[in-house]
Protein backbone atom coordinates (compact mmCIF):
# COMPACT_ATOMS: atom_id res chain seq x y z
CA UNK A 1 0.00 0.00 0.00
CA UNK A 2 2.82 2.55 0.68
CA UNK A 3 3.68 2.23 -3.03
CA UNK A 4 0.16 3.29 -3.88
CA UNK A 5 0.39 6.26 -1.53
CA UNK A 6 3.75 7.12 -3.08
CA UNK A 7 2.32 6.97 -6.57
CA UNK A 8 -0.57 9.26 -5.69
CA UNK A 9 1.75 11.65 -3.87
CA UNK A 10 3.90 11.88 -6.97
CA UNK A 11 0.91 12.70 -9.17
CA UNK A 12 -0.31 15.44 -6.88
CA UNK A 13 3.15 16.93 -6.52
CA UNK A 14 3.71 16.81 -10.25
CA UNK A 15 0.57 18.80 -10.85
CA UNK A 16 1.55 21.35 -8.30
CA UNK A 17 5.05 21.80 -9.71
CA UNK A 18 3.42 22.59 -13.05
CA UNK A 19 0.56 24.77 -11.86
CA UNK A 20 1.69 26.39 -8.58
CA UNK A 21 -2.02 26.63 -7.93
CA UNK A 22 -3.79 26.93 -4.62
CA UNK A 23 -6.15 24.25 -5.79
CA UNK A 24 -3.38 21.69 -6.04
CA UNK A 25 -2.11 22.67 -2.62
CA UNK A 26 -5.59 22.11 -1.28
CA UNK A 27 -5.74 18.69 -2.93
CA UNK A 28 -2.30 17.91 -1.50
CA UNK A 29 -3.33 18.88 1.96
CA UNK A 30 -6.44 16.73 1.82
CA UNK A 31 -4.23 13.91 0.65
CA UNK A 32 -1.84 14.42 3.58
CA UNK A 33 -4.54 13.16 5.91
CA UNK A 34 -3.95 9.80 4.30
CA UNK A 35 -0.46 9.78 5.81
CA UNK A 36 -1.91 10.29 9.23
CA UNK A 37 -4.68 7.73 8.73
CA UNK A 38 -2.23 5.12 7.56
CA UNK A 39 0.12 6.06 10.40
CA UNK A 40 2.95 6.83 8.02
CA UNK A 41 5.82 8.25 10.07
CA UNK A 42 7.18 11.72 9.21
CA UNK A 43 10.51 10.22 8.13
CA UNK A 44 8.63 7.98 5.70
CA UNK A 45 6.78 10.97 4.29
CA UNK A 46 10.11 12.56 3.45
CA UNK A 47 11.28 9.34 1.92
CA UNK A 48 8.13 9.22 -0.22
CA UNK A 49 8.81 12.79 -1.24
CA UNK A 50 12.38 12.02 -2.14
CA UNK A 51 11.37 9.05 -4.29
CA UNK A 52 8.69 11.08 -6.07
CA UNK A 53 11.06 13.94 -6.71
CA UNK A 54 13.70 11.61 -8.03
CA UNK A 55 11.25 10.10 -10.49
CA UNK A 56 10.15 13.52 -11.68
CA UNK A 57 13.50 15.31 -11.67
CA UNK A 58 16.42 12.93 -11.67
CA UNK A 59 18.59 15.73 -13.01
CA UNK A 60 18.65 17.62 -9.71
CA UNK A 61 21.95 18.15 -7.98
CA UNK A 62 23.30 15.77 -5.39
CA UNK A 63 22.96 18.37 -2.65
CA UNK A 64 19.19 18.02 -2.99
CA UNK A 65 19.25 14.27 -2.40
CA UNK A 66 21.77 14.51 0.39
CA UNK A 67 19.79 17.21 2.11
CA UNK A 68 16.69 15.03 1.97
CA UNK A 69 18.64 12.21 3.62
CA UNK A 70 19.68 14.70 6.24
CA UNK A 71 16.05 15.68 6.73
CA UNK A 72 15.06 12.02 7.17
CA UNK A 73 17.63 11.77 9.95
CA UNK A 74 16.14 14.88 11.53
CA UNK A 75 12.66 13.42 11.54
CA UNK A 76 13.36 10.12 13.32
CA UNK A 77 12.82 11.59 16.77
CA UNK A 78 9.72 13.43 15.63
CA UNK A 79 8.34 10.12 14.48
CA UNK A 80 9.10 8.53 17.82
CA UNK A 81 7.53 11.35 19.75
CA UNK A 82 4.42 11.05 17.64
CA UNK A 83 4.13 7.35 18.33
CA UNK A 84 4.74 7.86 22.02
CA UNK A 85 1.93 10.37 21.98
CA UNK A 86 -0.40 7.96 20.31
CA UNK A 87 0.36 5.26 22.82
CA UNK A 88 -0.14 7.66 25.73
CA UNK A 89 -3.51 8.67 24.34
CA UNK A 90 -4.54 5.04 24.12
CA UNK A 91 -3.43 4.54 27.69
CA UNK A 92 -5.45 7.53 28.77
CA UNK A 93 -8.54 6.16 27.06
CA UNK A 94 -8.08 2.88 28.88
CA UNK A 95 -7.79 4.71 32.21
CA UNK A 96 -10.91 6.71 31.42
CA UNK A 97 -12.82 3.52 30.79
CA UNK A 98 -11.64 2.06 34.08
CA UNK A 99 -12.73 5.26 35.79
CA UNK A 100 -16.20 4.94 34.33
CA UNK A 101 -16.46 1.43 35.68
CA UNK A 102 -15.10 2.52 39.05
CA UNK A 103 -17.67 5.28 39.25
CA UNK A 104 -20.45 2.81 38.60
CA UNK A 105 -19.07 0.45 41.22
CA UNK A 106 -18.92 3.33 43.66
CA UNK A 107 -22.51 4.30 42.97
CA UNK A 108 -23.72 0.77 43.55
CA UNK A 109 -21.54 0.21 46.57
CA UNK A 110 -22.58 3.40 48.27
CA UNK A 111 -26.25 3.28 47.46
CA UNK A 112 -28.37 4.65 50.29
CA UNK A 113 -32.08 4.59 50.89
CA UNK A 114 -34.00 7.77 51.55
CA UNK A 115 -35.76 7.64 54.89
CA UNK A 116 -39.47 7.88 55.30
CA UNK A 117 -40.75 8.75 58.75
CA UNK A 118 -43.92 10.56 59.43
CA UNK A 119 -43.62 14.33 59.45
CA UNK A 120 -40.21 14.55 57.81
CA UNK A 121 -39.55 15.58 54.23
CA UNK A 122 -36.06 14.72 53.03
CA UNK A 123 -34.16 15.96 49.98
CA UNK A 124 -30.54 15.93 48.95
CA UNK A 125 -28.11 16.45 46.16
CA UNK A 126 -24.49 15.34 45.95
CA UNK A 127 -22.37 16.22 42.95
CA UNK A 128 -18.69 15.37 42.45
CA UNK A 129 -16.32 18.07 41.19
CA UNK A 130 -14.35 15.51 39.24
CA UNK A 131 -15.50 12.09 38.27
CA UNK A 132 -15.55 10.42 41.65
CA UNK A 133 -17.26 11.87 44.67
CA UNK A 134 -15.35 12.52 47.90
CA UNK A 135 -18.54 13.57 49.68
CA UNK A 136 -20.79 10.97 51.08
CA UNK A 137 -24.40 10.86 52.24
CA UNK A 138 -25.75 7.88 54.07
CA UNK A 139 -29.23 7.48 55.54
CA UNK A 140 -29.95 5.26 58.46
CA UNK A 141 -33.56 4.39 59.25
CA UNK A 142 -34.79 2.86 62.40
CA UNK A 143 -38.46 2.76 63.37
CA UNK A 144 -39.48 6.34 64.17
CA UNK A 145 -35.98 7.71 63.63
CA UNK A 146 -34.18 8.93 60.53
CA UNK A 147 -30.48 9.51 60.66
CA UNK A 148 -28.18 10.96 58.08
CA UNK A 149 -24.41 11.07 57.85
CA UNK A 150 -22.86 13.77 55.68
CA UNK A 151 -19.17 13.17 55.27
CA UNK A 152 -16.36 14.84 53.40
CA UNK A 153 -13.02 13.18 52.88
CA UNK A 154 -10.35 15.85 52.95
CA UNK A 155 -8.90 15.57 49.50
CA UNK A 156 -10.78 14.81 46.34
CA UNK A 157 -11.04 12.25 43.64
CA UNK A 158 -10.14 8.60 43.68
CA UNK A 159 -8.34 8.29 47.05
CA UNK A 160 -11.25 10.01 48.74
CA UNK A 161 -13.74 7.81 46.97
CA UNK A 162 -11.94 4.66 48.07
CA UNK A 163 -12.31 5.79 51.65
CA UNK A 164 -16.06 6.01 51.42
CA UNK A 165 -16.78 2.34 51.47
CA UNK A 166 -15.25 2.17 54.92
CA UNK A 167 -17.76 4.64 56.29
CA UNK A 168 -20.58 2.86 54.57
CA UNK A 169 -19.71 -0.52 56.04
CA UNK A 170 -19.13 1.05 59.43
CA UNK A 171 -22.60 2.54 59.32
CA UNK A 172 -24.16 -0.68 58.08
CA UNK A 173 -22.66 -2.49 61.03
CA UNK A 174 -24.09 -0.19 63.69
CA UNK A 175 -26.42 -1.93 66.07
CA UNK A 176 -29.72 -0.31 66.96
CA UNK A 177 -28.69 0.86 70.42
CA UNK A 178 -25.67 2.70 69.02
CA UNK A 179 -27.42 5.17 66.78
CA UNK A 180 -27.17 8.27 68.91
CA UNK A 181 -25.10 10.85 67.03
CA UNK A 182 -22.25 10.87 69.53
CA UNK A 183 -22.01 7.10 69.46
CA UNK A 184 -22.14 6.93 65.67
CA UNK A 185 -19.26 9.37 65.33
CA UNK A 186 -17.30 7.64 68.10
CA UNK A 187 -17.60 4.26 66.40
CA UNK A 188 -16.90 5.49 62.87
CA UNK A 189 -13.94 7.44 64.22
CA UNK A 190 -12.37 4.27 65.59
CA UNK A 191 -12.91 2.46 62.29
CA UNK A 192 -11.40 5.31 60.31
CA UNK A 193 -8.51 5.71 62.72
CA UNK A 194 -7.57 2.07 62.30
CA UNK A 195 -8.23 1.73 58.62
CA UNK A 196 -6.89 4.87 57.02
CA UNK A 197 -3.37 6.16 56.68
CA UNK A 198 -2.40 9.23 58.66
CA UNK A 199 -2.67 11.68 55.82
CA UNK A 200 -6.37 11.04 55.27
CA UNK A 201 -8.98 12.88 57.34
CA UNK A 202 -12.70 12.84 57.20
CA UNK A 203 -15.14 15.39 58.52
CA UNK A 204 -18.62 14.17 59.25
CA UNK A 205 -21.90 15.51 60.51
CA UNK A 206 -24.41 13.10 61.89
CA UNK A 207 -28.00 14.20 62.47
CA UNK A 208 -31.01 12.24 63.59
CA UNK A 209 -34.65 13.15 63.57
CA UNK A 210 -36.97 11.53 66.07
CA UNK A 211 -40.57 11.68 64.90
CA UNK A 212 -41.98 10.94 68.37
CA UNK A 213 -40.71 14.08 70.04
CA UNK A 214 -39.85 15.98 66.78
CA UNK A 215 -36.30 16.64 67.96
CA UNK A 216 -33.26 16.75 65.76
CA UNK A 217 -30.10 15.65 67.57
CA UNK A 218 -26.67 15.96 66.05
CA UNK A 219 -22.94 15.68 66.50
CA UNK A 220 -20.06 16.84 64.35
CA UNK A 221 -16.56 15.63 63.63
CA UNK A 222 -14.95 18.86 62.52
CA UNK A 223 -17.63 19.34 59.89
CA UNK A 224 -19.31 22.45 58.52
CA UNK A 225 -22.07 23.63 60.85
CA UNK A 226 -25.60 22.84 59.70
CA UNK A 227 -28.26 25.53 59.44
CA UNK A 228 -31.55 25.40 61.24
CA UNK A 229 -34.37 27.50 59.85
CA UNK A 230 -36.86 28.46 62.55
CA UNK A 231 -40.07 29.22 60.67
CA UNK A 232 -41.81 30.87 63.59
CA UNK A 233 -39.03 33.41 64.19
CA UNK A 234 -38.00 33.48 60.51
CA UNK A 235 -34.30 33.16 61.42
CA UNK A 236 -31.40 30.81 60.80
CA UNK A 237 -29.21 29.36 63.53
CA UNK A 238 -25.95 27.52 63.01
CA UNK A 239 -25.86 24.05 64.50
CA UNK A 240 -22.38 23.08 65.54
CA UNK A 241 -21.03 20.64 68.09
CA UNK A 242 -17.53 20.01 69.36
CA UNK A 243 -15.55 17.12 67.97
CA UNK A 244 -12.32 16.26 66.17
CA UNK A 245 -12.08 15.15 62.55
CA UNK A 246 -12.44 11.41 62.12
CA UNK A 247 -9.22 9.45 62.13
CA UNK A 248 -7.16 11.83 64.26
CA UNK A 249 -7.42 10.22 67.69
CA UNK A 250 -8.83 6.79 68.52
CA UNK A 251 -10.64 7.87 71.70
CA UNK A 252 -12.08 11.18 70.47
CA UNK A 253 -15.33 12.23 72.16
CA UNK A 254 -18.18 13.93 70.36
CA UNK A 255 -20.56 16.43 71.83
CA UNK A 256 -24.23 15.84 71.11
CA UNK A 257 -26.86 18.56 70.96
CA UNK A 258 -30.44 18.83 69.87
CA UNK A 259 -33.19 21.19 68.75
CA UNK A 260 -36.93 20.76 68.53
CA UNK A 261 -38.38 21.15 65.05
CA UNK A 262 -41.76 22.74 64.32
CA UNK A 263 -43.77 22.53 61.14
CA UNK A 264 -42.04 24.49 58.40
CA UNK A 265 -38.64 24.30 60.11
CA UNK A 266 -35.80 22.70 58.23
CA UNK A 267 -32.20 21.69 58.70
CA UNK A 268 -29.62 22.13 55.93
CA UNK A 269 -26.54 19.95 56.24
CA UNK A 270 -23.76 20.47 53.75
CA UNK A 271 -20.12 20.03 52.91
CA UNK A 272 -17.56 22.75 52.37
CA UNK A 273 -18.11 22.46 48.63
CA UNK A 274 -21.29 24.42 49.36
CA UNK A 275 -20.05 26.92 51.93
CA UNK A 276 -16.76 27.53 50.18
CA UNK A 277 -18.20 28.08 46.76
CA UNK A 278 -15.75 30.26 44.97
CA UNK A 279 -16.93 32.79 42.44
CA UNK A 280 -15.03 35.38 40.48
CA UNK A 281 -15.54 37.79 43.39
CA UNK A 282 -14.15 35.34 45.95
CA UNK A 283 -15.82 32.99 48.41
CA UNK A 284 -19.50 33.31 49.09
CA UNK A 285 -20.58 33.68 52.71
CA UNK A 286 -23.12 32.03 54.96
CA UNK A 287 -25.55 34.87 54.32
CA UNK A 288 -25.67 34.03 50.64
CA UNK A 289 -26.62 30.49 51.50
CA UNK A 290 -29.15 31.61 54.09
CA UNK A 291 -30.72 33.98 51.58
CA UNK A 292 -30.93 31.21 49.00
CA UNK A 293 -32.53 28.85 51.50
CA UNK A 294 -34.92 31.57 52.56
CA UNK A 295 -36.02 32.16 48.95
CA UNK A 296 -37.42 28.66 48.78
CA UNK A 297 -38.31 27.96 52.40
CA UNK A 298 -41.84 26.96 51.50
CA UNK A 299 -40.83 24.43 48.83
CA UNK A 300 -40.21 20.73 49.33
CA UNK A 301 -36.92 19.51 50.77
CA UNK A 302 -35.75 18.25 47.36
CA UNK A 303 -36.66 21.52 45.67
CA UNK A 304 -34.71 23.45 48.31
CA UNK A 305 -31.61 21.29 47.78
CA UNK A 306 -31.80 21.61 44.02
CA UNK A 307 -32.39 25.34 44.12
CA UNK A 308 -29.25 25.92 46.19
CA UNK A 309 -27.25 23.63 43.94
CA UNK A 310 -28.43 25.18 40.69
CA UNK A 311 -27.81 28.66 41.95
CA UNK A 312 -24.31 28.03 43.31
CA UNK A 313 -23.31 25.88 40.35
CA UNK A 314 -24.29 28.62 37.94
CA UNK A 315 -22.26 31.12 39.98
CA UNK A 316 -19.24 28.90 39.21
CA UNK A 317 -20.21 28.45 35.57
CA UNK A 318 -21.05 24.82 36.33
CA UNK A 319 -17.44 23.96 36.96
CA UNK A 320 -17.50 22.88 40.58
CA UNK A 321 -14.24 23.50 42.41
CA UNK A 322 -15.13 20.97 45.09
CA UNK A 323 -17.55 18.11 45.63
CA UNK A 324 -20.95 19.57 46.47
CA UNK A 325 -23.43 18.03 48.89
CA UNK A 326 -26.49 19.39 50.64
CA UNK A 327 -29.12 17.48 52.60
CA UNK A 328 -32.41 19.00 53.75
CA UNK A 329 -34.51 17.62 56.61
CA UNK A 330 -37.80 19.51 56.66
CA UNK A 331 -40.45 19.18 59.32
CA UNK A 332 -43.90 18.94 57.80
CA UNK A 333 -47.31 18.41 59.38
CA UNK A 334 -47.80 14.78 60.35
CA UNK A 335 -50.17 12.65 58.28
CA UNK A 336 -52.86 10.83 60.16
Amino acid sequence: MPQEVGRQYKEIMKKYLESHSEEDLYVGQQFSRRFIEKEIAPEDVISIHKTALFELHPELRNEVWDSLDFLIEMMIHYGLTLREHQSLIQKQEAIQMEMNVATKVQDTLLKTKMPSVNGLDVGYISQPAKQMNGDYVYFLNHKHESGVAVADVIGKGIPAALCMSMIKFGMDGLSDENTSPRNVLGIINRIVEKGVDDSMFISMFYGKYNSEDTTFSYASAGHEPALHFDSRKDVFTELDAKGLLLGVKPDAEYEERSVVLHDGDFIAMMTDGVTETRTEEGFIDMHTIQNLLHDVKDKTAQQIAEYVYNHLASLQNYRLSDDFTIVIFKKEPEQV
Binding site: T81, L82, E84, H85
Partner: peptide, 20 residues
Amino acid sequence: EDGFSTSGGLGAGMPGVKRL
Protein backbone atom coordinates in the same frame (compact mmCIF):
# COMPACT_ATOMS: atom_id res chain seq x y z
CA GLU B 1 7.14 2.77 30.08
CA ASP B 2 6.43 5.67 27.78
CA GLY B 3 7.19 9.04 29.24
CA PHE B 4 9.66 7.77 31.84
CA SER B 5 13.01 8.69 30.28
CA THR B 6 14.77 11.68 31.78
CA SER B 7 14.36 13.57 28.56
CA GLY B 8 10.64 13.32 29.31
CA GLY B 9 8.23 12.97 26.41
CA LEU B 10 10.82 13.30 23.66
CA GLY B 11 9.92 9.85 22.49
CA ALA B 12 13.42 8.47 22.70
CA GLY B 13 14.98 6.30 25.36
CA MET B 14 14.44 2.57 25.61
CA PRO B 15 10.78 2.53 24.51
CA GLY B 16 11.95 4.48 21.48
CA VAL B 17 14.60 1.87 20.68
CA LYS B 18 11.95 -0.81 20.94
CA ARG B 19 9.76 1.05 18.47
CA LEU B 20 12.55 1.67 16.00
